[in-house]
């Protein structure tokens, strides 16, 4: 009975209440470490990244080329059928210019996260990655981009073996 309630519970604290010890807190830092198995599909994806290639899986049930690759098609609910190399070029589906880190610390140089639809995969098969070698104000949805790979000896079988995606120069303008 919203209108009939005069006192609502919940006591707001300000930062000074904590700093000056007016209320007590207990602090704890969780220490947890994990080693995640990459799995069958993503394991191969990572090995191919180390080799400088992007790989997907084809499902003959729905005739889609799936990226990131998976060993089963979640739509057809059957095993996928074969490995298919896709290009290291694509199109920016959407992007942001981010000035905030995970812990909300501010960045002076923004990160440029994007969803990139990769050439050779089925329409709509995007991956999340970063854009680079481009001014934030020049990024556009629909912009054509190409992967910039780490040097062979620096690659470790990780999504970061692609440093970022840069605009394809000959297609600009």
């Amino acid at each position: 009975m919203s209108v009939n309630i005069k006192e609502w519970p919940g006591t707001a604290l300000g930062s000074k209440d904590l700093e000056e010890g007016r209320v007590l807190t207990v602090r704890h830092r969780v220490r947890a470490e994990y080693a995640w198995d990459a799995g069958v599909a993503i394991g191969r994806y990572l090995r191919e990244l180390k080799a400088g290639r992007l790989i997907a899986r084809r499902c003959r049930g729905c005739d889609r080329i799936l990226l990131p690759p998976r060993m089963f098609c979640e739509e057809c609910f059957r095993p996928t059928d074969e490995w298919v190399y896709v290009q290291d070029t694509g199109t920016v589906n959407t992007f942001s210019v981010c000035y905030v880190r995970w812990d909300v610390a501010r960045l002076t140089e923004p990160q440029l996260p994007a969803v990139i639809h990769v050439d050779g995969a089925s329409p709509g098969m995007g991956i999340m990655h970063l854009l680079g070698e481009v001014r934030p104000e020049d990024v556009r949805i629909g912009m054509r981009v190409k992967a910039v790979w780490k040097q062979v000896e620096e690659r470790e079988g990780a999504i970061t073996d692609i440093r970022y995606w840069k605009p394809i120069a000959e297609e600009v303008g």
Binding site: W36, Y45, S96, C98, R101, W102, P113, V115, M128, I159
Partner: peptide
């Protein structure tokens, strides 16, 4: 954890995208 977290994402990214 394998295909995204190494890029240093945060929650704002997906909302902004």
């Amino acid at each position: 954890h394998t295909t995204e977290r190494a890029l240093g994402p945060n929650l704002l990214w997906i909302f902004a995208l």
